[in-house]
């Protein structure tokens, strides 16, 4: 087994997802199965093979810092936020 129960709890914090006991147990067995399955690619020889992260020979895109598109109006930016105040998104107090 690759992932222990403790690994699962740490992973949930890394992923920032609150999971209950049952979910943690289910996910532990599912992820361990899935990892066993995907590990089959370790049998493939990739000596001297470069990884592919992107499929196209892309270059960074630059543009002049002028006019361009109109940005969204403030009310549009905030229309989907649950809490806001004076032009800021509001989150629980951190200090």
């Amino acid at each position: 087994m690759v992932l222990s129960r403790k690994d699962m709890e740490e992973l949930a914090v890394l992923a920032q997802i609150a999971l209950d006991e049952e979910e943690l147990a289910d996910l532990q067995s599912q992820l361990n199965n899935l990892l066993r399955y995907v590990e089959t690619i370790n049998e493939i020889d990739t000596e001297n093979v470069e990884p592919t992260f992107y499929l196209l020979p892309l270059q960074n895109v630059w543009r002049q810092d002028e006019d361009g598109r109109q940005p969204l109006a403030a009310e549009e930016v905030f229309q989907n936020a649950l809490e806001q105040e004076r032009g800021f998104f509001k989150v629980p107090r951190i200090l």
Binding site: V38, I41, N42, I44, T46, V49, E50, P51, T52, F53
Partner: peptide, 9 residues
């Protein structure tokens, strides 16, 4: 990284 290399193949 392993998967990205197999992707190349």
């Amino acid at each position: 990284i392993k998967a990205a290399k197999v992707r190349t193949l």
